[in-house]
Amino acid sequence: MKLNTPRWWYVRGSRHAIVTRTLLKPASWLWAALTARRIARAAPVDPGAVVISVGNLTVGGSGKTPVAREVLRLLRAAGVEAHALSRGYGGRETGPLRVDLAIHTAEDVGDEPLMLALDSPAWIARDRIAGARAAVAAGATTLVLDDAHQNPALKKSLSLIVVDGETRGDEWPFGDGGVFPSGPMREPLKAGLARVDAVIVLLPTDMAEVDPELTAVFGDLPIFIARLTPAGPPPSGPRLGFAGIAKPWKVERSLVAAGCDLVEFAPFPDHAAYREEDLRFLADRAGMLGAGMVTTEKDWVRLPPTWRDRVVNWPVVARFEDEARFADYLTGVR
């Protein structure tokens, strides 16, 4: 079952959520304890390759998959045989399996592995150790793990976390610091940061600089600034937008900031599987408004093939402000 991300998770001092947070605290304590015990008891396996983990501390919405794509691009541009390795969330295949864009769909392998496979060899495996061994056997010398900060199966050479750097008013990447389900954190902030080698703060294009209050949280950890940048201009003419990601409101903001004539926006749950009736409703609504439809690349790959020509795909990419410094940091990992 897919759930909508509560926006109050990310609002500090949210008065209307106090009762809900209080009721969910016992479940949060249990979640945090189970996560800590799983990590403490693990015996990470060395797969015989450099392992770079790109993860986050919150439940979705940080932009880790665009960053993982950029990490892969920079490594491969430097001549490194880097492959992506993902759990394949949302797909029915268990792997180990190399993603083939010609035959696999989001229903098979999940939407994020399909995006990673657009640029680099990508594998999915519920068993990360088996997936890593398959990728290494196929020639990978570096593995880029998408969403593995809380997965201790593999011995990591470098642990990166991606943090959503967009802070507006009381909206904060970590909210009040509550652990799921009373807040967005996968584990307490201090525990998560203890296993981090470097932080990537991802900013939208319309935010001039990172909030110093946010960077202060990371202490002496190296910080790299990246921006989530549209790969091209938004489509012309009136548009009805929709998105099923962890923070759909950020897509709405980004489209407007990029100059899109957005007449209406429809949010869906993260990793939503679009049904025919959903798409017909959106198409009818767009027709009433005299608008075309636009969505994210991550949503577009989940659309049935018969609908892809009717919806504009608006991709975004992560680009580092000091690309040379970050590329040197990556290629120096052994």
Rank of each mutant, 00 (worst) to 15 (best):
residue 183 G to E: 01
residue 202 L to W: 14
residue 179 V to D: 05
residue 201 V to C: 14
residue 166 E to Y: 14
residue 201 V to E: 11
residue 203 L to Q: 15
residue 191 A to N: 07
residue 167 T to M: 14
residue 188 P to A: 08
residue 179 V to C: 04
residue 175 G to F: 05
residue 170 D to C: 07
residue 176 D to P: 01
residue 183 G to F: 02
residue 165 G to R: 09
residue 166 E to M: 14
residue 191 A to Q: 10
residue 175 G to H: 05
residue 175 G to K: 04
residue 178 G to Y: 03
residue 169 G to V: 10
residue 191 A to V: 01
residue 206 D to I: 04
residue 206 D to F: 14
residue 184 P to M: 02
residue 206 D to W: 15
residue 195 R to M: 07
residue 177 G to S: 04
residue 172 W to Q: 12
residue 194 A to I: 11
residue 167 T to A: 13
residue 204 P to T: 12
residue 198 A to G: 09
residue 172 W to F: 14
residue 202 L to K: 12
residue 197 D to F: 09
residue 187 E to F: 06
residue 182 S to Y: 00
residue 178 G to I: 02
residue 191 A to K: 02
residue 169 G to S: 08
residue 202 L to H: 12
residue 167 T to H: 10
residue 180 F to I: 05
residue 203 L to H: 12
residue 178 G to V: 05
residue 178 G to T: 01
residue 171 E to S: 11
residue 192 G to A: 06
residue 169 G to M: 11
residue 187 E to H: 09
residue 201 V to I: 15
residue 181 P to D: 04
residue 188 P to V: 06
residue 198 A to I: 07
residue 187 E to R: 06
residue 172 W to N: 11
residue 179 V to H: 08
residue 207 M to N: 06
residue 168 R to N: 07
residue 190 K to R: 11
residue 205 T to Y: 07
residue 204 P to K: 13
residue 168 R to G: 02
residue 203 L to S: 13
residue 178 G to Q: 01
residue 182 S to R: 10
residue 195 R to A: 13
residue 184 P to I: 01
residue 203 L to D: 10
residue 203 L to R: 15
residue 192 G to D: 07
residue 200 I to F: 07
residue 180 F to E: 02
residue 191 A to T: 07
residue 171 E to P: 00
residue 199 V to N: 11
residue 166 E to C: 08
residue 194 A to E: 15
residue 172 W to G: 08
residue 193 L to G: 05
residue 190 K to E: 15
residue 189 L to R: 04
residue 176 D to S: 08
residue 181 P to N: 01
residue 191 A to M: 04
residue 208 A to T: 15
residue 201 V to R: 10
residue 165 G to W: 09
residue 170 D to T: 14
residue 170 D to N: 14
residue 186 R to M: 03
residue 183 G to P: 05
residue 193 L to Q: 02
residue 208 A to K: 15
residue 186 R to G: 01
residue 182 S to T: 02
residue 165 G to E: 09
residue 195 R to D: 06
residue 177 G to N: 02
residue 208 A to G: 06
residue 181 P to I: 00
residue 177 G to M: 02
residue 167 T to D: 01
residue 207 M to V: 15
residue 205 T to R: 14
residue 207 M to W: 11
residue 191 A to C: 00
residue 188 P to M: 08
residue 166 E to T: 09
residue 204 P to A: 10
residue 181 P to F: 01
residue 181 P to A: 00
residue 192 G to V: 02
residue 190 K to M: 02
residue 171 E to R: 14
residue 198 A to K: 06
residue 177 G to A: 04
residue 185 M to W: 00
residue 183 G to N: 05
residue 195 R to P: 08
residue 176 D to W: 02
residue 177 G to R: 03
residue 202 L to C: 13
residue 189 L to Q: 05
residue 172 W to E: 06
residue 171 E to H: 12
residue 171 E to W: 13
residue 207 M to S: 13
residue 174 F to E: 00
residue 173 P to T: 03
residue 207 M to H: 14
residue 202 L to S: 13
residue 187 E to M: 09
residue 204 P to N: 13
residue 197 D to L: 10
residue 187 E to A: 07
residue 181 P to S: 03
residue 173 P to V: 06
residue 180 F to L: 11
residue 185 M to T: 00
residue 204 P to H: 12
residue 194 A to H: 13
residue 186 R to P: 03
